[in-house]
Simulated assay, not measured.
Amino acid sequence: MPSQSVLEQKKAIVAELSERLKNSVTGVVVSYQGINTEDDTKLRKELRENNVKYTVVKNTLLSRACEEAGLDELKPVLEGTTALATSDSEYAAAARILCGYAKDHDNFKVKSGYLDGAVVDMDTIVSLSKLPTRDVLLANVLGAFQAPIAAFARVMQAVVDEGGFDACLEKKAAEAAPAEEAPAAE
């Protein structure tokens, strides 16, 4: 039987994992078997740069943390080598990085994941992995908001370049007058 101090350490780890699962918006469980140290270091660096917390965990401890966090549906995939990647703010970062990494490394497998406290299927994880980064999405939204304003500004600049509103009306009237006379000449 393990000593009391070992049990206390394990309880603390389970409590920490449980809080991490509860407080994160998304998480991905992977099997990291067969990756070398150099690749693992690169992966961890990329995850860190995207504010994703990545740790290797024991299956039994993660299983108990899943029970406490209400993510029991993750338990069936907890076998073999297991690592957990969680993000407190970015929904797609962990899935995007880990699914991309899994494409390039045969032994590295995405097992499961969760989103807003609910376990999701692999199709959802793959869909998340295909989303662009938060900055790209914000740039697209800003571009969509800015497009009508920019088009209006271009029209107004064209009016100014033509000599003002009255000059534009005169020019349009002059262009329309020959067109009206042409059918009468036939």
Rank of each mutant, 00 (worst) to 15 (best):
Ala150Asp: 11
Val126Glu: 15
Thr82Ser: 12
Ala179His: 12
Gln157Lys: 14
Ser127Gln: 12
Asn59Arg: 09
Ala167Phe: 06
Leu142Tyr: 13
Val160Gly: 08
Ala158Gly: 06
Tyr114Thr: 08
Asn50Trp: 00
Val110Leu: 03
Leu137Arg: 10
Ser129Asn: 09
Met156Ile: 08
Leu71Tyr: 02
Lys75Tyr: 05
Ala177His: 12
Glu49Gly: 07
Ala144Gly: 14
Asn140Lys: 14
Gly143Phe: 09
Leu138Ser: 07
Glu170Gln: 15
Met122Ser: 08
Val120Lys: 05
Gln146Phe: 08
Thr82His: 02
Cys99Gln: 05
Ser112Gly: 11
Arg154Trp: 04
Thr55Asp: 04
Gly163Thr: 07
Ala94His: 00
Val56Gln: 06
Ala153Leu: 15
Leu128Tyr: 01
Ala176Val: 12
Lys172Trp: 14
Leu74Ala: 03
Glu79Gly: 07
Glu90Ile: 07
Leu138Met: 10
Ala147Trp: 06
Ala139Gly: 13
Gly164Tyr: 10
Arg64His: 04
Gly113Lys: 00
Lys53Tyr: 13
Leu78Glu: 05
Thr81Asp: 09
Ala177Leu: 15
Asp121Ile: 13
Phe145Ile: 13
Thr60Trp: 05
Thr124Trp: 02
Leu62Cys: 11
Lys58Ile: 04
Glu175Phe: 10
Leu138Gly: 00
Ala92Lys: 02
Asp106Ser: 14
Ala153Cys: 12
Arg134Cys: 01
Glu68Phe: 04
Ala94Lys: 01
Asn59Asp: 10
Cys99Val: 06
Gln146Ile: 08
Asn59Met: 04
Val52Ile: 04
Ala176Asn: 11
Ala69Tyr: 01
Val126Ser: 14
Tyr114Gly: 09
Lys171Ile: 04
Gly113Arg: 01
Phe165Lys: 02
Lys75Arg: 15
Asp161Val: 06
Val120Thr: 07
Glu170Lys: 15
Leu131Cys: 03
Glu181Leu: 15
Val56Ala: 11
Ala93Gly: 08
Arg134Gln: 14
Asp106Ile: 00
Asp166Thr: 14
Asp88Trp: 05
Pro148Ala: 07
Lys53Pro: 00
Ser87Glu: 06
Ala93Leu: 12
Val110Trp: 01
Val155Ile: 13
Cys168Arg: 04
Tyr101Ile: 05
Ala174Ile: 11
Arg154Pro: 00
Ile97Glu: 02
Leu142Cys: 11
Phe165Arg: 09
Val119Met: 05
Asn59Val: 06
Leu169Lys: 11
Leu128Arg: 00
